[in-house]
């Protein structure tokens, strides 16, 4: 197993490096950074001076390694707009997004996994059809629009919940609902599919033939086998939610990493954009490794081979 993980770790590291090269490339695609640093009305001499000052006249490869070594030490450069260190900027904005993403994932799992199990156990029943219908709707609804509808209904008409800001837990209810609908349908479908497969498996027929009660058959024998891909999907979803919260954060005026990315993209603050892309992919890769570890806990075939 440790060899397996060493290999996974090696690949993960390679993925992170490749992503960093790509996000670095993205920064260069944006045009002449010295020009945008110098500002609109700068003279050619000023631009050249800035280019030398920031080392932008050196070959790209040298610049990349320069950036990479700094990044490893936690120095992601400075914002072109606010001159703040990018690392601090990201850390200060990360908290809101992490809370939002974790809450949304937890909500999605709490609803989707039991629903998927029920749908599989009572296949083709009304509960199966209802949850599939919800999944179809959930994966079709544009989240920016769903957020507006929630704001209109619960914030404006019913006045139950605040519609923007991040002062109290109440502020997180509507964003969490919006964001969790983005991953709920997938988790539901995967749980249902995995359960159906497990319920049709010979070891589940064997469990019935042993006279075990339905509860034991479903939860001891079927669910652990069905849940493996769901664990992986949940980890991936968390990464997706961290990066996908940009719309929800913008609609609900939350100051998370998504809105930071959005602002930075609009202002062409590419050191910040590049670092956010890099940090998010780093987190994603970490999460997939964690899901591998959890799966190894559940499945001895991974653990012992």
């Amino acid at each position: 197993m440790w060899r397996y993980f060493a290999k996974r770790l090696g690949i993960a590291l390679l993925v992170v490096i490749t992503v960093s090269v790509i996000s670095f490339g993205l920064l260069r695609l944006s045009g002449d950074m010295a020009q945008s640093l110098a500002g609109e009305g700068a003279t050619a001499e000023q631009v050249t001076a800035i280019r030398q000052l920031y080392g932008l006249d050196r070959p790209l490869v040298v610049q990349y390694f320069d950036w990479a070594f700094d990044a490893v030490r936690g120095d992601l450069g400075q914002s072109l707009v606010s001159n703040q260190p990018v690392f601090e900027l990201i850390v200060s904005r990360m908290q809101v997004t992490i809370v939002l993403a974790v809450l949304s994932l937890a909500a999605a799992i709490a609803v989707a996994v039991p629903l998927g199990v029920f749908a599989a156990v009572y296949r083709n029943s009304w509960i199966d059809r209802a949850s599939l219908g919800m999944a179809v709707f959930g994966s079709a609804v544009p989240n920016f629009w769903f957020a507006l509808v929630l704001i209109y209904v619960f914030g404006v008409q019913l006045r139950w919940l605040p519609i923007s800001g991040s002062q109290s837990w109440e502020n997180f209810v509507l964003p969490t609902i919006t964001l969790s609908t983005m991953v709920m349908p997938q988790i539901m479908r995967l749980t249902r599919g995995g359960m159906i497969e497990a319920l049709d498996a010979e070891y589940v027929r064997m469990a019935w033939a042993k006279g075990l009660s339905p509860t034991v058959v479903f939860f001891k024998h079927a669910l652990p086998n069905a849940i493996l891909p769901v664990v992986t999907l949940s980890a991936v979803s968390l990464g997706f939610l961290l990066g996908g919260s940009v719309i929800v954060e913008s609609v609900f005026s939350l100051n998370g990493i998504g809105s930071l990315a959005y602002e930075s993209i609009r202002r062409a603050d590419f050191p910040v954009v590049q670092s956010i892309l890099f940090v998010l992919s780093f987190v994603y890769v970490l999460l997939t490794l964690v899901s591998d570890l959890i799966n190894a806990r559940i499945d001895p075939r991974i653990r012992l081979n």
Binding site: E202, Y203, R205, M206, H221, P300
Partner: peptide
């Protein structure tokens, strides 16, 4: 099939 009639976990 004894390969599949025992629960792998």
């Amino acid at each position: 099939d004894p390969m599949t009639s025992l629960n792998p976990v």
